[in-house]
């Protein structure tokens, strides 16, 4: 059987998705993702060269709303569930710190 996705690719994808995987997780995810991609291989046999792709079930154009003020969220309620705030802003750890 062709190996659809390598352990290195899984590690790379995890980094892109901002997930950190243990060695065991890398092993199990590599084989599980491989199994799903194997199943998806049935699409390879299909010739769809002349078929238009559909990203959506209904025809949509840009949907714009009238530029009118509407009621927004209560700022207190929004900050109540924020991990950390300071002076009506979300507080985060250093963004330019040394990456390990």
């Amino acid at each position: 059987m062709v190996q659809r996705i390598s352990r290195e690719e899984v590690a790379h994808v995890a980094r892109l998705a901002q997930l950190s995987l243990s060695e065991e997780e890398l092993d199990s995810f590599t084989s599980q993702l491989g199994a799903v991609l194997d199943h998806a291989a049935d699409l390879e046999a299909l010739n769809v060269d002349d078929v238009e792709p559909s990203s959506h079930p209904i025809p949509l154009k840009n949907v714009l709303r009238p530029d009118e003020p509407i009621e927004n969220f209560d700022i207190e309620e929004v900050f109540e569930v924020a991990p950390e705030i300071e002076e009506n802003q979300f507080r985060v750890p250093p963004i330019l710190g040394e990456s390990q």
């Binding site: 997930l19 993702l33 991609l37 985060v92 750890p93 250093p94 710190g97 390990q100």
Partner: peptide, 26 residues
């Protein structure tokens, strides 16, 4: 965690279960 980027990764790694991680990676 020490930086914002590491905080994001740590939060996501701890917060999501296996199936969600699989689908995000897929």
């Amino acid at each position: 965690a020490a930086t914002t980027a590491e905080t994001m990764t740590a939060t996501r790694t701890k917060g999501f279960g296996d199936e969600v991680k699989r689908r995000i990676m897929l």
